[in-house]
Each structure stands twice: as structure tokens, then as C-alpha cells.
């Protein structure tokens, strides 16, 4: 598995000009953010792109098998490495820190329970944990009713985005693959996918806010996820991991 060090990488973004559709690559280092100027949320036309930095020669050994074996040091390391990530994922839809903490606790309970079935040939630990976290978040939203406020979608309540610890998370190369796949999507589809996956809007809310027909929104989400899934499947195949069936 190829991991990238996002802390020291010159992370770059593909910026798609909305009018021309042309893509250009921009580096993010040297961007000076004033104290009152928060990092902007990702616009519909900006796509995270994989870094050009050379991959780490030796990816760190996975922690979850050690957790499954009862290694307390591995538990500490997982928390050190991924708490910020899980907090970011869980806090996107709520401003109540107690509620978010409950959710984070539930996610890690699931992570400890599921540690034994982690397979590093299939996904990175970050993706494995993020998948668990997203399921919990979605379950919670459905259980308590949707309370996503547009304000909470502002970047100042996406903690973790500015957090040192998040930078240290091993954002593995499948995240880079996702970024690459996103960069090739039509801007409209990418925008819909971001609203749905990252901001947590329902399909109907997206249709309402964008003016797109609901069927079009659903189609964009399905196709966008399918594109990413295809990339991940191809990556697994390159590692010799059998994938039983086409995702579509």
C-alpha cells in the first residue's frame, strides 16, 4: 500500500475553471491565511488531488491487527492517530459537543469490535475507520432526525481541517485515487457528490438547493460513487486482491 505524508507534502489542488472547464494545478503551500480568514470550504469547482510527493518507502505496519490481539499500545496509537479524523467526520452535522462525543465513542467501540476483520490489502486503516464512522453518523442522523444546519457546514465547524493531528493521519492512496476520480468528474456531478458525501445533505435537499431534478441528483451520486469504487477495485486488483463482482 502506498501512503502519502500529507504533512510534508506539497499538496495540490486541481482547479477547474467553471466557464472553460479547463483544469490547472495549484500548490497550497505559501497560502497565507490571516487570522480572520478561515480556509475556504471546497468549492464546487475545486477538487482535492493527490500529491506529487514520492510515496513513503515503507508504510507503517497496520495497528488494528495489534488491537485485535489486545495490544494496549496499539489502542493508544490508533486513538492518537485517528481521533481527530473521527471527530471531524462525526461533527459535520451537529454543534453539540456532547452529542458528537457520544458518537465518537460509539465509532471507536465499533472500531475495537471490528479490528479483527481489518485487512490492509483491501483498504487503509483511515478508510476502514472512516467507513465505520460514516455509518454511525448516518445512523444517528436517521435516528434523531436530520438537524443539519447550513451554518454548521461552514468551514469553522469542520474541526480537524486545521488540526495538526489530522495531518498526521495516514490518508492513504485510496483517498488520492478518490481525488483523482473526482477531478475527472463533470463539475456538476462533483458538486453534488460533495454536498451529499461531505456535507451530508439529503438527495432532496440537494435537488432543492441546486435546482436539479431529483433523478439527476440521484444519478450523479450513483455514478460518482461508482467511478470511485471502480478505481478502488482496480487498485485492489493491482495488489492481487480478488474482487468478486463489478460494483455496478
Amino acid at each position: 500500500m502506498t501512503l502519502r505524508n500529507t504533512r510534508s507534502a506539497t499538496f495540490e489542488r486541481v482547479v477547474v475553471e467553471p466557464t472553460t472547464g479547463r483544469r490547472s494545478l495549484r500548490g497550497s503551500r505559501g497560502v497565507c491565511l490571516h487570522r480572520t480568514q478561515r480556509p475556504r470550504s471546497m468549492s464546487a469547482h475545486e477538487v482535492p488531488a493527490p500529491s506529487r510527493m514520492a510515496p513513503n518507502p515503507a508504510p507503517p505496519a497496520p495497528l488494528l491487527p495489534r488491537v485485535a490481539a489486545g495490544d494496549p499500545e496499539a489502542v493508544r496509537e490508533v486513538l492518537r492517530r485517528y481521533t481527530s479524523l473521527v471527530w471531524s467526520l462525526c461533527s459535520a452535522g451537529s454543534r453539540d459537543p456532547h452529542e458528537v462525543e457520544d458518537l465518537v465513542q460509539e465509532v471507536f467501540v465499533d472500531v475495537w469490535r471490528s479490528a479483527a476483520r481489518y485487512d490492509d490489502r483491501i483498504a487503509s486503516e483511515a478508510t476502514f475507520i472512516a467507513t465505520i464512522a460514516r455509518r454511525r453518523v448516518i445512523d444517528r442522523r436517521r435516528r434523531v432526525g436530520r438537524r443539519i444546519e447550513q451554518e454548521s457546514l461552514e468551514e469553522d465547524f469542520l474541526p480537524g481541517a486545521e488540526d495538526d493531528a489530522l495531518r498526521l493521519v495516514d490518508v492513504a492512496d485510496e483517498a488520492g485515487l478518490a481525488a483523482a476520480a473526482l477531478s475527472e468528474l463533470p463539475p456538476e456531478r462533483r458538486h453534488v457528490l460533495e454536498l451529499s458525501v461531505v456535507r451530508g445533505l439529503t438527495h432532496r435537499e440537494i435537488a432543492s438547493s441546486t435546482g436539479m431534478p431529483l433523478g439527476t441528483v440521484k444519478s450523479h451520486i450513483r455514478r460518482g460513487l461508482s467511478e470511485v469504487s471502480d478505481r478502488l477495485r482496480a487498485r485492489r486488483a493491482s495488489f492481487g486482491v480478488e474482487y468478486e463482482e463489478d460494483a455496478r
Binding site: 500529507t6 507534502a9 499538496f11 489542488r13 497550497s28 503551500r29 505559501g30 497560502v31 497565507c32 491565511l33 490571516h34 487570522r35 480568514q37 478561515r38 480556509p39 475556504r40 470550504s41 471546497m42 482535492p48 488531488a49 479524523l85 471531524s88 467526520l89 483498504a123 483511515a126 478508510t127 472512516a130 467507513t131 460514516r134 455509518r135 468551514e155 469542520l158 480537524g160 481541517a161 486545521e162 488540526d163 495538526d164 489530522l166 495531518r167 493521519v169 490518508v171 485510496e174 483517498a175 488520492g176 485515487l177 478518490a178 481525488a179 473526482l182 457528490l193 460533495e194 458525501v197 461531505v198 460518482g224 460513487l225 461508482s226 470511485v228 469504487s229 478502488l232 477495485r233 460494483a247
Partner: peptide, 30 residues
């Protein structure tokens, strides 16, 4: 498969946002 795809998309955005904030105001934002 689609759960995993959604998670990686989410990670890609978080990673990009994290890198985006890699600037002079990093400490105050933290």
C-alpha cells in the same frame, strides 16, 4: 463498495482541506 467509496471521497476532501490550511494562520486556526 459504495460505503467505502463514500468514505474515501470524504477523506479526500478532509485531506485537501487540511492541506489547504497549511499556512501562516495554522496555529490560530488550530
Amino acid at each position: 463498495a459504495l460505503d467505502e467509496a463514500a468514505a474515501t471521497v470524504h477523506l479526500a476532501y478532509l485531506a485537501a482541506r487540511s492541506a489547504q490550511s497549511d499556512g501562516a494562520a495554522e496555529r490560530s486556526e488550530a
